[in-house]
Design a protein around this nucleic acid. Structure first.
Lengths: 117, 117
DNA sequence: CTGGATCCTCGATGATACTG
DNA sequence: CAGTATCATCGAGGATCCAG
């Protein structure tokens, strides 16, 4: 068993780095998107307004490196590649979705000026 | 009732901005910390390895602006100020905690090299 | 102790052009 | 279509000094 708990509050703990990966603005959008099934590069570009090709590729690659996303290259021509959640990524997506949903449901309260004190 | 759903995938939607606020690396650490009760500036500095005074203040201020955190100044000297979660922040903290916990429990799988294919 | 104000650097990110 | 490579910029963030 594991008696040493990872501690994101420790600067050197790997989990700290993971927090950064997951906390990433684009990851937070991409991951839940893939819950609906595999998506291709162009599809993601269209789905996520404002993301650049560079950031999309970069983010997907990182998600792949962390075993959250699987890249499948069909080796066809013209190129056909899609991305899907790994089992691990799927598990994470559920958590992130609840975060996104929280935002969608509460963002008005967040932006509302306090009545006062 | 509200028939227009906020859509974080739209570049101009305010919820997109919120995602960025919440997705912030430091916010993700600060918010769950405050679940245990109010904390002072120096306490937070000590609790979160590697954060600078500037980022701490800045992040707290932003969280306050979004009604997630309440700042209380006791008006004493030497200065005594503490920060606590607002009800809204408390609600968010629960969600974020589950994200953090997910990371703590799964980060090893994230960093493990794929066996192969 | 809390934290405001400055200066400065480095890395993240966007835009563009090119390739298989 | 799916990227890679390069360049230029801009702002996030750290370090430092100051103040109530």
């Amino acid at each position: 068993m594991l008696d040493i708990k990872p501690d994101p509050y420790a600067a050197l703990c790997p989990s700290r780095q993971i927090i950064a990966v997951i906390g990433d603005k684009w990851s937070l959008l991409i991951i839940p998107l893939l819950l609906d099934g595999p998506m291709r590069n162009a599809e993601l570009m269209r789905a996520i307004e404002g993301i650049s090709q560079k950031m999309l590729t970069q983010t997907l690659k990182r998600l792949e490196d962390y075993n959250l996303v699987t890249r499948r290259d069909y080796g066809e021509v013209p190129p056909r590649v899609d991305y899907r959640l790994s089992p691990l990524g799927h598990s994470l997506a559920a958590v992130i979705s609840s975060l996104d949903n929280w935002v969608i449901e509460n963002f008005e309260d967040m932006t509302r000026k306090q009545s006062h004190a």
